[in-house]
Structures are given as C-alpha cells and as structure tokens.
Design a protein around this nucleic acid. Sequence first.
DNA 1: AGGGGTTAGGAAAGGGGGTTTACGAAGTCT
DNA 2: AGACTTCGTAAACCCCCTTTCCTAACCCCT
Lengths: 416, 416
Amino acid sequence: MKRGTSRDIRTANRYEVLRQIIAASPTSRQELAAATGLSLATVATLVGELLDLRMITEVGFEDSAGGRPRGLVAVNASGGALIGVDIAETYVHVELFDLGLNVLARAEEDVRPGESLPEQVVGHVAAAVGSVVAQAGIEGARVLGVGVSVPGQVDRATGFSEYAPNWDWHDVPLLDLLTEHIAYPLYLDNPLRASAVAELWFGAARGSGDAVVVNLGTGVGAGLVLGGGLHRGVSNSAGEWGHTTIVLDGRLCRCGKHGCVEAYVGASGIMLTLRELSADSPLLHPEDQTATIDALARGLRGRDPVALKVLRDTVRYLGAGIADLVNLFNPEVVVLSSWVAAALGEPLVTEVREAVARHALPRPMAATEVVLSPIPTDPVCLGAATFALEGALQSVGQRQPKRTAAHVRSRTAPPS
Amino acid sequence: MKRGTSRDIRTANRYEVLRQIIAASPTSRQELAAATGLSLATVATLVGELLDLRMITEVGFEDSAGGRPRGLVAVNASGGALIGVDIAETYVHVELFDLGLNVLARAEEDVRPGESLPEQVVGHVAAAVGSVVAQAGIEGARVLGVGVSVPGQVDRATGFSEYAPNWDWHDVPLLDLLTEHIAYPLYLDNPLRASAVAELWFGAARGSGDAVVVNLGTGVGAGLVLGGGLHRGVSNSAGEWGHTTIVLDGRLCRCGKHGCVEAYVGASGIMLTLRELSADSPLLHPEDQTATIDALARGLRGRDPVALKVLRDTVRYLGAGIADLVNLFNPEVVVLSSWVAAALGEPLVTEVREAVARHALPRPMAATEVVLSPIPTDPVCLGAATFALEGALQSVGQRQPKRTAAHVRSRTAPPS
DNA sequence: AGGGGTTAGGAAAGGGGGTTTACGAAGTCT
DNA sequence: AGACTTCGTAAACCCCCTTTCCTAACCCCT
C-alpha cells in the first residue's frame, strides 16, 4: 500500500490552484485563496511557482475597496501547448490546446477496418500530431506533452496496451511505438479515465470529492472520481461499468456475456432497441451509429413517438444502472458524457434524472445531482491533454539531484 | 472538498502501526518499520505515543544477531476496553473487547417484533452494555468507547439514524438517546461500514489499498475500502449494493423494487430460492432464516443435491453481482463477510470464485482475490468496536489548548 | 575481565508543507 | 501631505517524515 507523503498535498494544491485559474481567468490571489480554502501565503507561493513555469502571467490589476489593487493572473496561453489524442474504434482524433485548454488545432484520421495493426494506428497518430503542430504554427519545444487515450486496458507503468477489445490487441508496447514517432513526453491511458479527468478539471465534477462520470458512446464506462482524485484500482482498470449485468441472461453483448449495460445503452444497443421497435424506421441508418443517434436526437426534438419510445426504453436500463452507481458510491454528481449523451442532450438527462430518482435509495439520491457534461469539445481529447498537463505539473516538485560534495573529500592535502 | 493535511498522515500511520502490533503481538520496532515502510525513527516515535497512551507495553527483549537485543512491544490488554454494539433486526448483540480485540464478554438481547421503538431498542443496548461491563469486571473508566452499528443510513455528524428500513425509523436522534444511558464516548455507524473496517484492521483487507467487503446476511451490502480507507460517500451512505438491479423486473424485493441483488442472495432470497426449488424440503425452516441457512450448510457438506442446487442458483446471481464490483472497482481483494457467508463457508467461496472469474473481465480479475472473512467472531461488533478504537486514537493528535501566557500580562506591577 | 564488533534505539539536524504574523508596497481618502 | 486601507511577500512557527550521528547493550574473543 502506497503511503501518501506531504509532497502529494503540494501537488494536489498546485492542481487545485491551476484548475481554478483556468476556470476563472483572470483572477486574483484573494479569490484563489477563498476558492481553494488555502491560506493567502500558500496560494502566493503556488502562484509564484506557476509564474516561474510560465504557465500563467500577471495581467494587470483590479480595484480593491480602497487599498492596494489586487494583482490579476491569467493562464499564459502562449506558455506552451498540450496535445490530446483520442484513439477510437474508427478514428484517431487529435486536438492541440493552449494552456487555457482552448483548442488551437484539430486533426482527424479515419482508421479503416483493415488497418488496425498497432503500427498502422500509430502511423495515424503520428501524422495527426504532426498536422496539429504544423497547423498551430507552434515550435516543437513549446509542446509540454501528448496525452493518448486508447480503448481497453492500459498499463501506465510499462506503457503497454494490455488489451484493446475492438482490435484484439494484446500486450502491445504502444508507448514504445509512439515514442519512435513522437518526440514529446507521452502519457497513456484510456478514454474512460480521460473523460473523468476532463470533468474533474474543467467540467461538472470540479470541486466534487466524489463523482461518477458515465460515458455513453460506442462503449460504455464509468470514470470514478473518489476523494477528489481519479480512482484507478489496483491494476488501472477500475470503471469498467459497461459489462455490468443488468438483465441476467439478457441481450448478447459484444463481450460475449449476456445482459450487459452496454448492450442496452451503448450506441449499438440503442440502435438495436430502435430496430426491434421499428425495423424500417427512417431514423435507422444501419452501419452508421452516429447518423442513427443524430436522427434519434432530431426525432426527440420533434417529439417523434418512436424516438421517444426508444429513449424511454433505453433510459429504463440506463436509469437502473446509474441508480445502482448512486447507491454504491453516494457521489455528489453523476455526469453524463461522451458523444451519445451529447447528442441526445437535455431530453436524455431529464428522463435519466427521473428514472434514477425512482430506482435509487432516497438518501443517497438526495445528495446527488445528475447533469450533462458541460464540456463543449471532445472530452476524451481534453482529458488526454489534461494527463499531459498533470504530467508537466508533476515534474515541478522534483528535487534536482544533490550536488556531490566532492571538495569535502579532498582531505588528502589538508591545509597546513 | 476537504483537503488533506499533514496530520492526517500521522493519524494514518498511527493506525497502521497499531494495526500491525495487534496483528503480530509481540513485535519489535524493526519489524514494524519493515511492515509499514516507515522509517525506524518514525516508528519509534509512534510507538512512544502508543506507550504513553498505555495502549501497548514493553514486554521484554528478543535476540538480535549479535548486537543489542530488540525491545518487544505488545498490546496492553488491560490498558482499556472497547465495546462493539451490533443492532440488528431481531437482536442486539454486544461484545466487550480488550485492546488486543479479544472478546472479554458478550451479551445478547432479543428485539421482539413489537418492540421496535427507538426507546425500547436503546433500552436493550443500555442493558447489554451494562451487562458486558459487569461481566468483565472492568472499571467504567477503562472503557475507551462504544461503537454502535445500526442498520440503514446514519448521519455521523448529527448522530441521527436517518432511516432504518426494518423499523421504519426516520430521523431518530439515536446518539442523544444513547447518551442518556451510556456514559462512554459513542461512535455511530452502520453494519456495512463496521464490517468493512473490521476487515481493514484485522481481516482480509489488511494492507490492501482497495478492497470490497461483501456482506451477506439478512441484508446485503458492500463496504468499500478505497485508497486504504473507508469510502463513505458524500452523505455517508456509500456501499448500498443490496438494491442493485441484477434482474430487470425480477423478484420483488422488500425495498419495493424488483430484481435487487438482495432479493436473490440475501438470506430470505436464498430461502425463497429453496422454496421455489423444493417447497417441502427438510432443509427449509419457514420463519427461521438462521436455521434454514445452517441446514443448507449441513446439506452442502453432505453433498445434498437440493442444497447444491440452491447454492449454484444463488451464486449465479451473486457471482454476476460480485463480478460487476470487480470490474467497477478493480480491488485487490473481495471479502465475503457476515453470517450467511460464514455459514456456507468454503463451498460458497469456491463457487463464487469460479462464477466471478467467468463473469468479470480478465484483466481486473487477474488482480483480484476472492476470500472468506477470516474474522472468527461477529464482524459487526468487532468493526463497531474498531470505530471506538479509531476514535480513541484520533484524539491523540489533538493539540492541547495553548497555555495562556497570563504572567506576561501582569506587567502592571513590574519588578523594581 | 576487558576491549572490539554489532545491532538497537534515541536525539538532533534537515527538507517538505501549510499557516500565522509582521511589514513594506501601493493605492484611496481627507 | 498624511492617514487609512488592502495586497502580497518574508519570516517565524508548527507538523510531518527521514537521515545521520551517537550512545546503549549485547556478543565474542583475547
């Protein structure tokens, strides 16, 4: 069991202060102290560190009721760039961010079904990363790091993709492969945790001690924020919620089991529900999940009865599943994230809220909010970039190696 | 969000050292340092603190390969007593422990169906507590605290039992009621968390960063140990796993919903499974859960086909449910606890292990063990007593109020 | 019996972290 | 210009753990 050291406190506080600055830029030290609960002195030293790192800059002053004006600090947008890579089943999506986590450049490469060899995927990543750097006209030196999200289980220590369900990858040394093409510091993890970190830093989980980020996409998962930090589990695979059994002996899931949550509320599960309900529905675009979900979303806005029924059926499962998470974790907030949630939007949350309230125990439920992710862009890219940001911030605390006191040893010729 | 302070580190280390001493008493400072990963100096000061508290004593020496002998310390059994109270649906069970957490006295009171008013239950508790103190012949002053476990949701801050499902209690000021009868420091929580803490301190979760303690009794729940500590959630109701939906529209549960885990793997769920399978089975003792489960356990030992079938059916649900927990938390260990698990014993774990391995994802599963609770006595009493122990240790860190420097003020009459 | 050698354990120093207190800096108000 | 206010840094302080140094306590050997 790893014990916590006092340095972890410092790191957490540094994160917290930077989060706050990014969220409310520009801001004053006073405001930061109030928001973080730290003392003014601590905030001042942390702000000093971030200024030294050129991650933030002083941007003027603000009147203070009659006294010395407050100095304002803001994110130093040009102080560096972060790259987030979202490797998914059918595409590689790359975004380049400034330090305010604004998107400066985007690139997307399609991964065709035949091209799923690790080398091919890495090729796409390298090309897209090259592209965003070129687009943004950034000098390479300013890229602080590249976060890479890859589906499945990832071992962060070794940089192996232990298992990627869609491509049947097993123990691929992904980090090594990427290192050959990309010269920036690399941080590897999976989309579940990426979007959870994105919510933790910039989204609906900011400031929450405990939050559950429910990812609704092609795959389904739950990023767990516990005690103000990401819960990884003992082998970095916590959060695999998609294959939770919700209907014993139910629908066959692509994982081979029956009745998984994902088989009902994942994109293809929703498509199946639609097909079962109305096989020739105009909403249905076989072979195209995105189009179908978009059509469904339009249908909901137009109060199309089939679309409403599909939503209701889906939420029947989703609501029960999320209620289980609420009972189990008793979180402050449940965030619905990923592209299916973004597409279905308000109608989805409204239904989910109601269903969860019906299924969950009253007491935990009373303390929990269910919200849509407020992140406007791809949360996985943002989260991946956040891993890079955390990495860059982590290395601040590192003490430089001690000077070897060589001269002390030279006693062979003592002074007379 | 509460920030961690450096004092929390100290508290955690104090816990860790005491845990280790209790587990391997007598032991040396050297051994403690090795086991906890702390430096010798830190261990020495912590041991010093515990000696000052009279929680441990020096009990002699041990040869060290040729040098100064190691001093040995052991729990000071007579240094104090802890009381654990397990309030359950039909009984109040109280145990008095020495500081080595050995049971010195027991008392049990039956709570008859009509007697479920808070005052009546509190009366039983007070009587039983009085009884164990008398039995053990302990002076009152030596009781360091009383931990009380009460089913349902408990607000530790206010000492209210917010909701107790079996008795329809709502917002009962239980702590206040208990305080009127019991003069010792009181610590209130629920059985789920009590048995989780018991495993964390003395059972199978010792030294685990992440563990799930699955409680199989009349009720069903999961105590969550995350990051080496108990996870409580935002309103102290995390771990409500019993009412997780495992069969959509399945069996009616006493909570009013359908298809809850508890409806299948709780004691009465198991009884129902048995009744459905063989309504006139000799194993079945209607109206008596304990007798039925015991009969079932005997049946398993005798390889009775009906008993085996009941076990297999139960594990079908339980295995799926636990597999979900494994996927979600990726814990180091899953502990099966509470009286049903204890009664069914090895046959149960063996089946569960197999079922979980079948249902869970391979990667999280590879890192997880499924074990039976090694705690021989009532884990809820033990856990409740542990809350009292933690409470007693907590107050160590409290700084005594600063001496008011009164003499400094008396400048009115300065010395000539 | 009286030195080495070895190991345990305590005391002091050192490096982190956060907070409180004191004070100079930089404005406004009279 | 001087008084008042408020910001922000510097210094002192407390807590935590570790490293280093030194003494205590025992063995063995001469």
